[in-house]
Write a protein that binds this DNA or RNA. Structure first.
Lengths: 218, 218
DNA sequence: AATGATCTTCAGGTTGGCTTTAGGTGACCT
DNA sequence: AGGTCACCTAAAGCCAACCTGAAGATCATT
């Protein structure tokens, strides 16, 4: 028997003992199918799933409007995986190896709080920022952004019309371990302008000298 | 500055940008004191805290009947620590190093927060002063101000109708260390009049000779 | 290993706001 | 009236903040 299948059965057995009713799918396609056909309290998802990986399955479900709480199981444990899991719409994640106690505690917490509110896309004038899809568009034109660019834009869009200071942007778009040149913010602002303003002859991303930046609807 | 303090300041800055009001304690005793004296939406707790570690602080709070949601931060990342954190009454757990995105997602999950409290704009007659956007408008006309001009106007608007002395303005809009020519206040008053009064044929920013300045509604 | 994409650093150039200066205006007193 | 003092304001210098192109570093994918 495969390792994953053995794990799945263990989890199933344990959760059943806790009073959960459990369905198991052994690959991504089946999982997607079952998730769309049924209503679950919570979905536990392995990142490394045959036929469709966990991230993909997760985003597919979210795109389809399914906001069932999702717990993602990841093999690696870098912060990028965590962030990636959450970015893809998971509500929580657990790095392997994990203890049964922890999984159970987390699942109970997830079920109790009923999952996340659906992320809303933010609209600033004719600029639409979609956190769920990590995309943005101006009018009907889709603008491609790198993850970092998106993080900065998202932080600005969440507070559209307000001045967001450089240090706030640093705190929100960079790791706490980041210890580099704050000039990096200027570099990204510059890049964003080149993508969301210049091609459209707009100036919505304003500098407020000595204070920060402001994204305006106009 | 200690590493922990830097982290605390970063977290504080970032969360402040999200609309959280943040208090920071740099050791366990202070933390316990603050937690018992105030009511918080959520408590973020470092395991390795001077004078009383996170686990202890956590159980003490729970024993005292305080069930404020607690997010525990720890440097190690063994499953035992997780389990220990959860066993001690923490609601969630995060291993360092972590990213801001992750922390925020988790905190949001912990807190059921309403809309962000935005700093209130001040209205003086048909003059509206918006501290969040660092903008002001007279009627429907938006008036562009530099940060310094805004600081002076803000100080005057907060006490609309009252006389604000030159030295009060200096204290509020300039660094404590400022030791330049007090004439600078006059220069800024002049600039403000040119922007918020002259173009509208108004005289709301009055000089009170020998006393200071007064912003009137009229 | 190589490629391409993204992130970060660096350095030179530019700008705009802060501050100072200095001459002017008007108020108040004797 | 004349003098003094507080205030006004245009102009100019300075400097920190900001912009941006490019190169180096890092990461992911093939």
């Amino acid at each position: 028997m495969e390792d994953e299948e053995r794990l799945a059965d263990l989890v199933k057995g344990g959760l059943a003992g806790e009073g959960f009713a459990v369905d198991v799918a052994h690959d991504g396609r089946d999982g997607l199918w079952m998730a769309t056909e049924n209503t679950y309290d919570v979905i536990v998802l392995d990142v490394m799933l045959p036929r469709m990986n966990g991230y993909a399955l997760c985003s597919r479900l979210r795109e389809a409007g399914d906001w069932t709480p999702i717990m993602m199981l990841t093999a690696k444990d870098g912060i990028y995986d965590e962030a990636e899991a959450l970015d893809n719409g998971a509500d929580d994640y657990l790095a392997k190896p994990f203890s049964y106690v922890v999984l159970l505690a987390r699942l109970r917490a997830l079920v109790r709080r009923g999952g996340r509110e659906r992320p809303v896309s933010i609209t600033v004038g004719d600029l639409v920022v979609d956190p769920a899809a990590l995309k943005c568009r101006r009018g009907e034109v889709v603008v491609a952004l790198t993850p970092k660019e998106f993080a900065v834009l998202h932080a600005l869009a969440r507070r559209a019309g307000e001045v967001v200071s450089k240090s706030e942007l640093l705190a929100q778009a960079w790791d706490f371990s980041y210890d580099g040149d704050p000039n990096i913010v200027e570099v990204y602002i510059s890049a964003l302008r080149r993508k969301i303003d210049v091609p459209f002859g707009r100036t919505t991303l304003m500098t407020v000298r000595g204070a920060g930046y402001r994204l305006e609807a106009e």
